Amino acid sequence: MTNLLSKLLETHDTLLADGATGTNLFNMGLMSGDAPEMWNEEHPDRITKLYRGAVDAGSDIFLTNSFGANASRLKLHGAAKRAHALSRISAEIAREVADTAGRPVVVAGSVGPTGEIMEPVGTLSHAAAVEMFHETADGLKAGGADVGWLETISAPEEYRAAAEGFALAGLDWCGTMSFDTAGRTMMGLTSEGMVELVQDLENAPMAFGANCGTGSSDLLRTILGFVAAGPTRPIIAKGNAGIPKYHEGHIHYDGTPELMADYAVMARNCGARIIGGCCGTMPEHLRAMRDALDTRPKGDAPLLEEIVAKLGAFSSENDGTGDQSDAPQRRSRNRRNRT
């Protein structure tokens, strides 16, 4: 692989990814229920501002505004046939921002779930899912994305379909899943199961990991689960900025820049090489994360008690793999500095 991301991974121990898309766009005026992807055409200046916010804060990688740019999600807005075009435009705007950044910055084409449940549980066929992912990936590649970036996936079947879609488009990719149900994805996959899934794929991602979920503490426990399974590919950590709270008609995340700085350093110590934020993560969080990663030395992998003390309690008793009260001791100093 010779894309920019692979080059940066060869020369940097840790890369900083970007923060939230939705949270930042809501602050610019996006209304609940609107399709953010339509803003690629309607408000390209605001999308440029979104991208530049991440780059100016120090991100090495930023995601395009194309999370829901697939035929299934866009049909809810009467735009099912616009998936390729909206993906392409999102990447074109990003390409311009990256090319004028004054340093190497990776444009990662965001690809979210289809929003449907795949067969045999649901009605979405494997072939249909592959074609949806292929269309989005092809649009992102046409717009200049360096890599594809699959995120917030719950079902292994959908992850596999996306891998095929990226292969058809000829676009290298990374892929994260969301572990938000007692340490598992909504469809029951564990951290260990994801490592096995990635290793078995014919078109495996360049890097894999977790994003979103229920909080940064839970996400770091998932990262430790990945590391314990002995993966050979770089790990991604993209956690939310605290816990969502409803206040005066809006959802707010309570994570401070200081908390996200601690999260970033702990994610690195857990074994992640690509570290960013998800929901609620603003440029001020990214700046604090950048500074912490640049100035604080790498340390040992934290015990679970240390994660709780810094970032808050876990949302469930264990990580979904069966480890419970003995987990902190089993994931202690003997796994330091594994990547």
Rank of each mutant, 00 (worst) to 15 (best):
T2Y: 00
T2H: 11
T11Y: 01
A20L: 08
N24F: 13
L25H: 02
M28Q: 14
G29L: 09
M31D: 08
M31R: 15
M38Y: 01
N40Q: 02
T48F: 02
R52K: 14
A57W: 02
A57F: 08
G58A: 10
D60E: 10
L63N: 10
T64L: 08
R73A: 13
A79K: 15
A94P: 03
D99A: 12
G109L: 07
S110A: 15
V111H: 00
G112N: 03
G112Q: 02
G115N: 04
L124R: 04
M132A: 12
M132E: 13
H134Q: 09
D138P: 01
A142N: 06
A142R: 05
A142L: 07
D146Q: 09
W149I: 12
L150K: 01
E151L: 13
E151V: 05
E158L: 03
A161P: 07
G165V: 06
A167P: 04
G170P: 09
G170R: 04
M177W: 01
F179M: 14
D180E: 14
D180R: 03
A182C: 11
T185H: 03
M186Y: 04
M194W: 00
V195H: 06
E196W: 00
L197C: 12
V198A: 07
E202Y: 00
E202Q: 12
N203E: 03
N203S: 14
F208I: 10
G213E: 12
G215K: 03
I223L: 08
L224D: 09
L224W: 00
I236V: 15
P244C: 11
H250R: 15
I251F: 08
H252I: 13
T256I: 07
D262L: 08
I274N: 07
C278R: 06
C279E: 09
G280Q: 06
G280T: 03
P297K: 13
K310L: 01
K310E: 14
S315H: 12
D319T: 11
S325R: 12
S325V: 13
A327G: 00
R330S: 11
S332A: 15
